[in-house]
Write a protein that binds this DNA or RNA. Structure first.
Lengths: 201, 201
DNA sequence: ACCTGAACACCGTTCAAGT
DNA sequence: ACCTGAACACCGTTCAAGT
């Protein structure tokens, strides 16, 4: 088991190492060299496993976002599930403060997370395109919020930014409140538009 | 006038050069070396003018966002102004596709843009904290939207991303529609909450 | 075949040396 | 005083050389 070399090594292990580095030392510490070093390998073999650095970042994002959507309760009203879904997505973002940087690369992981919400809306009587639009709205709202939030509540020093010096920064509880209101507005809007169109059935 | 050296050179000129580089070649082309070179100067003098690269990015963001808020019409209902304001903020973002990266650094420019909206809400009878919350909601909603939008509608190749290959990507007109609905939901939500509290007067 | 070390063309930042 | 060139400690990526 100590006989591990670069010859066995798959993409998952590379992503594991990169995520460990992200968690322990932040995104700046994730480089092809540092990931290789953590695996006891030169940077070169990583290219055959994950492509290049952009692709590695995408794979990290995909792993962090996998299974993001909460399970659907059977008789749960769609409004409740939508709020739970939005909250879960936001929380997954919050877990990794610097994810907003990872995020720049692909939104594919979000699409996967979207399916259970779409299904729930369809079961609630939304037309296909109506459900897609509602889901997109909520996804963009939450992802956007989380992205901004990630920038506002920064915990890594970045040299010379004194805490509380940014007047647009909000506290954790203010952000929580802002998020709750925001999601409520969007969900209520979706509900009202839905009622206005689907009076039959 | 050809006798320009590094000895006269102020922060504004540095920011000018950096923005020109941003517009012409993208954010990756903006480095302390490249900005210096465009000014015919070594990278060293830039440090006494703008601090460091983070500070330069902040200054660029501030310049791009300056005067972002549209002028207030006298008798205009606050709802109309709020929508105009949101639209203007979004447009300012869209102008610089990679601004979302510049954005990571400071939200101070947004705070400045916020004032006319706050004033309009106050004149419409919003309490101080109510106006601040409404404004924050709209700001976060729009900034978040624009950030995601900037990542989705990418025009720079980034090696190996085929156009239309990202299923979460939406077309320009879809994004426009999404934005309009999103802003409407938030503004309507603000209006309803306001009516619910401020029945007197 | 698939690794490693060295190399290329870059970074941000600092420092000794010049004028 | 304030510049420049060189340096330091990094990048992502590629390539010749080794096994």
């Amino acid at each position: 088991m100590a006989g591990r070399t670069a010859f066995d090594l798959d993409a998952d292990e590379v992503v594991d190492a990169a995520l460990a580095l992200l968690e322990e030392e932040g995104l700046d510490a994730v480089s092809m060299r540092s990931v290789g070093a953590r695996l006891g390998v030169s940077p070169v073999p990583l290219y055959s496993r994950v492509g290049n650095k952009d692709a590695l970042l995408e794979a990290m994002a995909a792993r962090l976002m996998a299974g993001m959507a909460p399970a659907v309760d059977e008789g749960e009203p769609w409004v409740d599930y939508a709020v739970r879904w939005a909250t879960a997505v936001r929380r997954r973002f919050a877990r990794t403060a610097e994810l907003r940087l990872v995020l720049g690369n692909s939104r594919a992981p979000f699409v996967e997370a979207t399916r259970p919400l779409i299904d729930t809306l369809r079961r609630a009587g939304f037309a296909a395109d109506e459900a897609v639009q509602a889901c997109r709205l909520l996804l963009w709202a939450v992802a956007g919020f989380a992205t901004i939030e990630g920038g506002t509540v920064r915990d890594r020093p970045t040299r010379g930014r004194r805490p509380g010096g940014d007047p647009s920064g909000v506290s954790r509880t203010e952000a929580d409140h802002l998020f709750a209101v925001h999601v409520r507005y969007v969900v209520e809007g979706i509900a009202r538009d839905h009622e206005a169109t689907g009076v039959d059935g």
